[in-house]
Design a protein around this nucleic acid. Sequence first.
DNA 1: GCGCTTCTGTGATAAATGTTACTGTAGATT
DNA 2: AATCTACAGTAACATTTATCACAGAAGCGC
Lengths: 208, 208
Amino acid sequence: MQHSLKDIFPNFSSELLSTIEENGSAQDFEAGTILMRTGQYIKNTVLITKGKIKIYREGEDGGEFLMYYLQPGQACAISMICTTKSEKSQIMAKVVEDVSVMMIPLQMMDKWMMEHRSWYEFVIETYRSRFEEVLEVVDNIAFRSMDERLEFYLKRHSDACGCSEVNLSHQEIATELNTSREVVSRLLKKMEQRGLVKLNRNQIELLR
Amino acid sequence: MQHSLKDIFPNFSSELLSTIEENGSAQDFEAGTILMRTGQYIKNTVLITKGKIKIYREGEDGGEFLMYYLQPGQACAISMICTTKSEKSQIMAKVVEDVSVMMIPLQMMDKWMMEHRSWYEFVIETYRSRFEEVLEVVDNIAFRSMDERLEFYLKRHSDACGCSEVNLSHQEIATELNTSREVVSRLLKKMEQRGLVKLNRNQIELLR
DNA sequence: GCGCTTCTGTGATAAATGTTACTGTAGATT
DNA sequence: AATCTACAGTAACATTTATCACAGAAGCGC
């Protein structure tokens, strides 16, 4: 069953909602799709109405460092920021759970800021929350060691999917933390010994 | 000799400039002043007209991780973002070179967004550039080792002060990179052997 | 079942970074 | 000059993280 835009963005005024329906283009993408690559020019602001997206920062050596998740009711802050001057994307966006999005042409972004108070507030709040999220990422890598970062990673994953099972291989986790598989395996083993997780093949159960 | 607001913010319309003069409060602070602490509520948006400010992320253990510099013609993105809802600051701001600032009461922020196109563009550009700067910080700590980060730190310092001498002790540098003095000393010695710097007491000369 | 691939576990070792301890030196204070 | 203090250099060692090597287990296709 499909939720309406109104349910997903409850703070939008009804005028704004119909303008979005009019000017936006609804699109679906399967899990695994790369929605945006580092260096690409951005032509749309993306509103997520269903599914999940992960935002990565790419290293020169091909690393894919996980920054944060995007979920229904949220928007890609980068696509908003870059939109105005049609700048290049500084990040990579990957679909991790089949998504539906509304693509908003870049010229609408500025226009609506003036015309719709609820759009303005949404944009500011998007900036604020994403900025804070990135600051938290900085905290983690600047001040914490790998075991703490791994615990944080697992917690965030289960928060995002709303369940206590993480269905990822150690290699995938290692890539997103920019470390090696062996390190992840070892740290997970220690967590299992401490009773924090139960390890299965391609699955980690969080116990507390 | 004092530059006028118009010279420092050349893109602001003359109406906006006079509104700023009218509603803002010009204030000076000496080097060393903490302008904003983590957890404080933000009551003003800060425009820098003279001097330099460093923005830090504070760790729980008392670490002060340097994020970026603010210079004349720039504004504190955090103070803009948090302003709307009078949120708590997520960062610490320290004056490193005597500054003059314009304090803009938070309610002006929203008002001017609607009334002054040049303010709107300035705010969006501020968000964009600060976001990019933080992403670069993430790059550095996620993908680079301490020697590369130290070189980047020194380069950024000399860019900010416009000279090739860094007048800081090894301890101060270590604090801002969240490492220990010994590590900084060792790496600097190696850089000296590679001919990249010349080390004096309380001063590092960049040679290329 | 057999062969193949992917995933996981683990030891050995290397490299980077953090910590402790101690020394010497430059500059300031008296 | 004698003393004091902050700063810098460095050796020795501990810890964390990365890399290499290999082996066993789980799932898959045939």
